[in-house]
Design a protein around this nucleic acid. Structure first.
Lengths: 253, 253
DNA sequence: CGCGAACTTGATATTTGTCAACTAAGGTGG
DNA sequence: CCACCTTAGTTGACAAATATCAAGTTCGCG
């Protein structure tokens, strides 16, 4: 099963016909190098973009030269329907690592939403999870200190990557520079560096290069005020490599 | 035409049948006093909530007692489908003024999305605009100073209220306390007070009680770095009281 | 070998938060 | 009608968080 179908299934059981359609939808993939724009603010996309593998981000550049990153798209995540519903992009999307992407024609998405109500609801579900993450980031920036916010982000990435099987034993790869993190949390690079140092010195996080290790997730959650409810992790229909991850608590959302 | 239909129409022309269905959907309204919770985090909603009139907000309370507000629902706005798709609420919704609301049964929403594709796409459109606003707020908090962020918010509210005809000549009502604003912008009350004072002293904004007057919107936009593109204001199909607002620039999104 | 990108650290400046005190306005009970 | 609440707004003084500037270090790569 492809990662799009996998993700949708975690919300609602799809029919054989649904699955066949989805398989068809992602037939033609292409590779994109790291650090490339997939689409830019102001563009009028003809297709809907879907990231099947790799790490990408949404961001905006301001007139004063500053950049803000407001979401990460990880392996298995797919893009929202922004390009389908709106004519022009109000933000840009760029890869962080090499990515496998699919360009889905508008027409195809239209068909999906009109003739496959379960898929349509699945897309809505995914969109709403993205929205919930945005809300939590707002809380993060508004109400938590830089160190707490940094810790919270590392918690969230752990949870999200765990769902798609990209965490083993508290270790995961986070292909972000400190500049990326700074532009995500809305703090300076220097302060980002010091926040990470504080987390390391507190023994909450270990980071070597892009490898993150969280020795005690409960401690990090407590420190950052993290609760996973906003990720709306499904009832556990997702089954990666035949074994449900032991680390993900089953939350009957 | 009711405000739900009006809002959806601004995205896509609805059929007579669509309109009739919508009229039926909002038949049973109720009044709610100001400063009341409509739904709380952790609740399992049976219906989808729709605010027809008044001012409401979404917020979250943190363990440390802090509150963060991450969106305002204004007259004519309707709630997203959060309660429809997710079982439990990951945030709370409260009225700020007296509101007219409708409780739409899940079953009804299900019917709408399955049998009225244009309405379904309209709901998606509205959800994505909400999402775009969340992204802009993230940029606001992350990359702008407190004064700029405050100005940006006042710009945004002007634009959004203008669309629904609640602005006359640069004047509008904003029923928020400075505490509300502080919890929205993620800054302290005192600093909010001083930011507003700075805007007043710069002649960019006049505020008396809850009445806001913006003498020169272009100046305020320039000061705050505001561009309306993220609101995805439609091609102008909305027609309030028979006259399209002169203040809204028609943006062919 | 040298260069650039990312990371690190110290010193200092600026922004923002906290504490405390005070004013103004509206509501309520006597 | 007034005394007395409470809530919202305002201001000053000071503390804390965060930004900026400047100067390294480390490491991969041509």
């Amino acid at each position: 099963m492809n990662s799009l179908a996998q993700k949708l299934q975690s919300f609602e059981k799809l029919s054989e016909a649904d699955l066949a359609v989805l398989e068809n939808v992602i037939a033609k993939t292409r590779q994109v190098d790291a650090r490339q724009d997939l689409i830019e603010e102001g563009d009028v996309p003809t297709d809907v973009l879907l990231v099947l593998e790799g790490f990408a981000c949404r961001y905006k550049l301001l007139a004063n030269g500053r950049r803000h990153i407001f979401s990460y798209m990880i392996a298995g995540d797919f893009c929202d329907l922004h390009g389908f519903i709106f004519r022009t992009m109000d933000h840009s999307v760029a890869t962080l690592t090499t990515c496998t992407v699919v360009d889905i024609p508008r027409r195809t998405v239209l068909d999906l939403t009109e003739h496959h109500p379960r898929i349509a609801r699945g897309l809505m579900w995914s969109t709403l999870v993205d929205q919930a993450v945005l809300r939590e980031w707002l809380v993060n920036m508004g109400q938590r200190s830089a160190v707490e916010a940094t810790a919270h982000l590392l918690c969230e990435m752990l949870m999200r990557l765990e769902i798609v099987g990209l965490v083993s034993n508290g270790h995961y790869q986070l292909p972000l520079t400190q500049t990326d993190l700074a532009d995500t949390l809305g703090i300076s690079i220097v302060h980002t560096n010091r926040s990470l140092k504080a987390l390391r010195e507190a023994g909450l996080v270990e980071m070597i290069d892009k490898a993150v290790y969280i020795p005690n997730i409960e401690k990090l959650k407590a420190f950052s005020g993290f609760t996973a409810n906003y990720l709306h992790i499904g009832p556990g229909k997702v089954d990666i490599a035949g074994v449900r991850s032991r680390h993900v608590k089953t939350v009957t959302d």
